[in-house]
Amino acid sequence: MSERPRIATDTRERRVGLWFGLLCGVTLIVCTASLLFGAGAIGPAQSLDTLLRALTGRMTDDNAWFAIESLRAPRTAIGVLVGAALAVAGALLQAVTRNPLAEPGLLGVSGGATFAVAIAIALGADAATLRVPVAQFGALAGCLAVLAASRVRGAGEDPVRLVLAGAVLSGLLYALTSLVLLFDERTADEIRFWVVGSFAGRRPADVIALLPGLGVAGLMVIGIARPLAALALGEHVASGLGHRPRLVRLLVVVAVALLVGSATAIAGPIAFIGLVAPFVARALAGPDVRATLWLCLPIGAALTLGADVVSRLVVRPSELPLGVLTALIGAPVLVAVVRSRRLPTL
């Protein structure tokens, strides 16, 4: 029996590893594109020339270098971080609710973060660093509210009902956000572009403000990935394997709040990345949530940053809000997921 090839070491793992490498390569290409293309006067050829000169330590054109280093580089970093965070948050939320439609933007998690930030700005807080914890708190409240609603009898069984509960909560929160903007003109100016989702005009300091929340969430995800995978077999089986389902669920909710709060604070509510990226990742990775989470990192980053690059180019010299673009990609995917036969068996 010992000379038999080992069955337990799986071919699926190797395939997922291959996909991960490939998708990281795609993400790198998108990052390069993000540094080369912009809505302004500095074209891709000039950008490439400047970038190569800078990399080899030669003199560069100041204007072009400014556009790349101060405008496009932080924007690229934010695109990667926000995209990966939203994708992982979506995959986590979907695993814990066993519902492929559970998306932070659809469930009111982003809505909670948006509303909290709008309140904070209306109350006079305008420091960007304050936004992150406020948004995380709002995301946590939104997350808990919609999960409580899904606990209502019968609602948890039907994936579409959870989304309906989330849509109601989202609608309410965005209405309240609009109300705040109505009463406060200064807030309205500051927040209007943010509220549709955008990466424009972010500074390197904004990127740094994201790192603590994302770092903590990352560590939490590493810790709960294994029990979360076991939860897919049912609560009793997971308990029987030595896990504590309640604790795991609580940690997932906190991690989702940290991720979505960070992303929303910096980029505004961006819908559908948390739906589309895990949907693609699951198709490539199979049923194990650990593999899905790994693939979500590059898929979310490439998708979000790719959408951002496109948003800079389609209506030059102005920009299309990113949230509009992700909704254009995401809505058809949502319809496809709902129509697919395999909906209830996550």
Partner: peptide, 23 residues
Amino acid sequence: LLPQSVTAPEGLTAAELIRFGRQ
């Protein structure tokens, strides 16, 4: 413990299921 009427996510293979037993 093996509870009554258990379900696994679609696509999970026997080997992958059994690996959970090592957790």
